[in-house]
């Protein structure tokens, strides 16, 4: 329960703390940065930390997918959107009530406090038996047997999303 700092468990604990720090710092940059491109960079940093947390949850496959899909694809798409639609920074004057920032901070803080209190207060019973070890092989097997229907449906959703974003992005382009 109390690993020495030089043992393998202690070093893993230090790496876990670093991952927590990366996640938190990235999330704070993502919501507080003035320029949107810096917020996207913070989001990428946050997702690297989340991928590390998934690795500590014994799911290297999901960690890999997090890096591939979020850091590799979603953040790049966001960068493209910033390049296409970012207004000039000098035009970004605040048109909002100054209270919005403080009030949203208070609301989000109360929500977070409530969730943390709930998580610390509750007791969870662990499962009596585990059906498998949750390795990459087990994930692949159940993805292609038990969840094969959902797997196919997700591919249809992605196809519709591709066509829909093409149609939306194409509309009105000829007159511009």
């Amino acid at each position: 329960m109390n690993p020495p700092i030089t043992s393998a468990d202690g070093l893993a604990g230090i790496v876990f703390l670093v991952m927590l720090l990366v996640t938190g710092a990235g999330a704070m940059i993502a919501v507080n940065a003035e320029r949107t491109i810096r917020a996207v960079a913070g989001l990428a940093l946050c997702f690297v930390g989340v991928a590390g947390i998934y690795y500590f949850l014994q799911s290297p496959f999901v960690a890999l997918m997090e890096m591939l899909i979020y850091v590799g694809a979603v953040c790049v798409v966001l960068v493209f959107a910033v390049m296409l639609a970012e207004p000039h920074p000098e035009q970004q004057v605040s048109k909002r009530n100054a209270l919005v920032g403080g009030l949203s901070f208070i609301t989000a803080g109360m929500l977070t406090w409530g969730l943390v209190a709930l998580a610390k207060g509750a007791t969870w019973s662990t499962a009596a038996v585990r059906m498998n070890e949750g390795t990459m092989r087990d994930v692949g097997l159940s993805l292609l047997t038990t969840y094969s229907m959902v797997f196919e449906l997700v591919s249809v959703v992605l196809l519709v999303a591709i066509i829909g974003s093409l149609v939306l992005g194409r509309a009105g382009r000829s007159k511009a």
């Binding site: 996207v40 989340v50 048109k95 909002r96 901070f105 989000a108 969730l115 943390v116």
Partner: peptide, 27 residues
Amino acid sequence: YLVIGAFLFGIGFYGLLQRQTLIGMLI
């Protein structure tokens, strides 16, 4: 992990309310 998830949710909720641009809200 539950506390990490709660903090990510809270930070995201704060950003959703406070951001002024659509891309910021998407982030």
